[in-house]
Simulated scan of single mutants.
Amino acid sequence: MKQRQWLALCLAFVLCLGVGGCNKKNEPYKETQFLLDTIIEITAYGADAQAAVKAAMEEFRKIQPLTDHFDPASQISKINQNAGIAPVRVDPEVIGMIRHAQELSEKMDGAFDISVGALTRLWNVGHNGEYVPEAAEIEALLPLVDYRLIQIDLVQQTVYLPKKGMYLDLGGVAKGAALNNAVNALKAKGITSALVNAGGDVRVIGRKPDGKAWRIGVQDPRNSEGVMAKLTLDQWDTLETSGDYQRFFIKDGVRYHHIIDPKTGRQPREIASVTLVYQDSAEVSDLASSGILVLGVEKGLQVLQRFPGVEAIIMTTDGRLITTPALAGAVGQ
């Protein structure tokens, strides 16, 4: 499935469950843009909703020129271009995202790693047709993947990759940072009811105008028109999903998707979809559901215990639906 088709379907599921049913007195202001290589949809209610949504959307635009590794002029691209050559001075926000990514990597035993870029470029799923690299090509790049090698100088505000060929891909954290900034922008404008959907990663503010909690559909990873779970965000304000159905191709009966295990250079095979649900806070913010997918069910659930208050819905590739205990009564089919 093409990426934009999947994103459009994902938006349809979220919006039909989260926005529908409101009366005409509470018509939302909605805006959609394609930024950070995904579809961003912001829906807000209130007298200043239009101005608030535009301010929130601007936060995504600000992040893009900093972190877009496809843009040779971005700050992340400058870091990559200077790997093994020299440190690169960057904005404090870029430093913050990289440090946050390193902390996540440590907590997830390296299953999430922004230095995996050399491998994601090699596979280039979603951009390079049905290309399957040779084992030797993968093995040659594995020494370039290690978040612990990334050098940050807080005084000089520089980032340095010590090995030529190292490549950062901030896709796993840039969207979350922009999402947080967008929500803060909405709140600064006095918005008390809103939904921000960044390619399937969702943040809500308050409740819908009718007083009901936002209800979000989680896509069935093997049915593009189906919902495998419906979740009411009454205790949580954040939902993020990673899956093997978002960007993929099938060749000779094998599914190759865009999530790469940093330690093997290949796609993990046990989990089809992971959805994390939590209340965003200083202690728990901008997690990496892809890391849980890489770890697999048993290890993933163990690692999840390091993040208090975070719950999960996991669909395995053989069709098992697994939830953490707190979601047992919250997930509706």
Rank of each mutant, 00 (worst) to 15 (best):
N181S: 14
D201T: 08
S242G: 11
N180R: 15
P209T: 00
K208E: 00
I260R: 04
A229V: 00
G200R: 04
S242A: 14
V202M: 06
G190H: 05
K251M: 14
T192P: 02
G176S: 05
G165L: 10
D220T: 05
W236E: 07
M228F: 06
A213T: 00
S193T: 03
A182Y: 12
D234I: 01
L233N: 02
D169R: 05
V254C: 13
A185H: 05
D210K: 00
G176C: 04
Q246N: 12
R255G: 06
R203N: 15
L168M: 15
G217N: 08
L231R: 01
D252N: 15
G176Q: 04
A213S: 01
T238D: 09
I216V: 15
Q219R: 11
D201K: 08
G171F: 02
G243R: 09
G253D: 12
E225I: 05
L179M: 12
G253L: 14
G171E: 08
D234E: 03
D237A: 10
A178C: 13
M228G: 07
K189T: 01
A177Y: 11
I216E: 06
Y160R: 09
H258V: 09
G226K: 03
K164C: 10
V173A: 01
N184E: 10
D234M: 00
G206T: 00
K212W: 01
V173R: 01
G172K: 01
N184P: 03
I216N: 07
W236N: 10
I205A: 04
H258E: 12
T232A: 09
N180S: 15
Y167W: 12
K189H: 03
Y256S: 10
N197A: 12
E240H: 06
T192W: 01
I250E: 13
S242L: 11
D252E: 15
Y160P: 04
S193Q: 05
P162T: 11
R207V: 00
E225M: 05
F249D: 15
I205T: 06
K230E: 13
G226N: 02
A174Q: 03
D237E: 13
I260M: 08
L186A: 06
K230N: 10
R255P: 06
Y245Q: 11
E240T: 09
N180Q: 14
V159M: 06
F248Y: 15
G200W: 04
Y256N: 12
G200L: 09
S193L: 02
R247A: 14
L233S: 02
T232S: 13
K164H: 14
G165F: 09
N184R: 07
K208D: 00
N223E: 03
A213M: 01
D234L: 00
F249S: 14
V159N: 11
A177F: 12
V204A: 03
A194M: 11
V254D: 13
R215M: 13
A178G: 15
R255E: 05
A229M: 03
D244M: 10
G253A: 13
G206R: 00
V159R: 08
A182Q: 11
G211H: 01
H258N: 13
G226T: 03
Y245T: 07
N181T: 07
V159T: 12
P162R: 13
G211C: 02
S242Q: 10
G200E: 05
T238F: 09
R203H: 14
A198H: 08
A178W: 09
D210I: 00
V202F: 07
D244E: 12
Q219E: 08
R247G: 08
I259Y: 04
M228K: 08
D169T: 04
